[in-house]
Every structure is written in structure tokens, then in C-alpha cells.
């Protein structure tokens, strides 16, 4: 049953990610990325990461993708474009990295049985709910990275405003 769910989600994810790269219209690419994000969220649910699934839907599809679509509409670029001349390089690199990764993965044969749980973390995680556990770890062990993340968001916000607004000094001249 779990395998069937995984195969469905994996199939749709691979298909839509190929479509993101292959489709010519940016709006269609963004829509297929939307479908991919939803299926990644489904994959998170099968992995017992319910909080991340919700965050994936809210942040990725709700905020990031809407921003993409907004910019696509704002720029209003309708022109057809060809693929880049780097196609042979990209094919070579892609095939090389993919075969390398697949050989590594399939040779090592990661076992499906659980590893011995390291430390006291495991039992507590299994007992408590997913969201509570993430919250406790995030606000205790990873408190400093959390604050740095908020700083990153602040800097990105200021940077986006500064970059996207019209040049005031140029207009005054």
C-alpha cells in the first residue's frame, strides 16, 4: 500500500518536473510546478511529516508560486524561445550525474530496517506528535539558526524592495 502511494507520488513528481523544464510557456511550467509541490506535500504525509506538508502547501504553492505567476503576468513575455545551445553539455552532465547517483544508491543498498536509534531523540519523536516535536526542537536546539532565518527574510524583503522599485535619483535628473 505504501509502495503504491510512493510510486504514484514519485511518478507524478518526475513527470511534472520534466514538464517544468520542457514546456515553453512559463505559465504552464509554473502550473506543473504547482502540481509537483502538491505531490511533494503528499510524499511528506506518507513520511509522517505532516507539519512540513502543510508548510509546503502554504509557503511554496501559496506564496512562492503565486509570486512567480505574478511576475510572469507582470512581464508579459509571450515570445517563443528555443532551447539553449548548451544542450549537449547539459545532456552529458545530467546523464553522468544521474548514473553516478543511481549506481551509488543501488550499490549501497540502504536497508529498509531501521538503524539503532541514536541517543534519546528517537523514542520521544515517535511518541509526541510531529508538530510538537518540531516546535520543541526548533525553539531549543535550533534557536539561533531560527533567528538567523528571520534575519535572512528581513534582508531579502529589504533587498527585493530596493531592487524592484524605480530608481528615484534617475527620475529626478
Amino acid at each position: 500500500m505504501a509502495q503504491a502511494f510512493f510510486l504514484y507520488f514519485a511518478g507524478i513528481i518526475v513527470l511534472t518536473s520534466v514538464l517544468v523544464v520542457a514546456l515553453r510557456n512559463p505559465v504552464y511550467s509554473a502550473i506543473s510546478l504547482l502540481i509537483m509541490f502538491f505531490h511533494v506535500a503528499g510524499l511528506y504525509v506518507t513520511l509522517h511529516a505532516e507539519f512540513l506538508a502543510a508548510v509546503q502547501i502554504i509557503v511554496y504553492t501559496g506564496a512562492i508560486l503565486v509570486l512567480y505567476l505574478f511576475v510572469v503576468m507582470l512581464l508579459n513575455v509571450k515570445r517563443e524561445e528555443r532551447y539553449h545551445a548548451q544542450f549537449p553539455l547539459a545532456a552529458l552532465l545530467g546523464v553522468t550525474i544521474l548514473t553516478e547517483g543511481l549506481m551509488l544508491t543501488l550499490n549501497r543498498r540502504f536497508s529498509s530496517e531501521p538503524l539503532p536509534l541514536s541517543g534519546d531523540n528517537g523514542a520521544a519523536d515517535a511518541a509526541a506528535g510531529n508538530t510538537e516535536t518540531i516546535g520543541e526542537v526548533l525553539y531549543s536546539t535550533y534557536l539561533f539558526p531560527f533567528e538567523v532565518a528571520s534575519l535572512i527574510l528581513l534582508v531579502a524583503m529589504i533587498g527585493a524592495i530596493v531592487l524592484a522599485k524605480k530608481d528615484i535619483t534617475a527620475r529626478d535628473r
Binding site: 518526475v14 518536473s17 523544464v21 512559463p26 532551447y83 539553449h84 548548451q86 544542450f87 545532456a91
Partner: peptide, 15 residues
Amino acid sequence: VTGLVGVLIRRNIII
């Protein structure tokens, strides 16, 4: 790898 190939072969900067 799909994303990597996409970065290399597309000309549209949004894609």
C-alpha cells in the same frame, strides 16, 4: 538532475 538540466538548457530566466 532535471532541475540541473533545466538551468543549463533554458533561456527564459524565470524557468
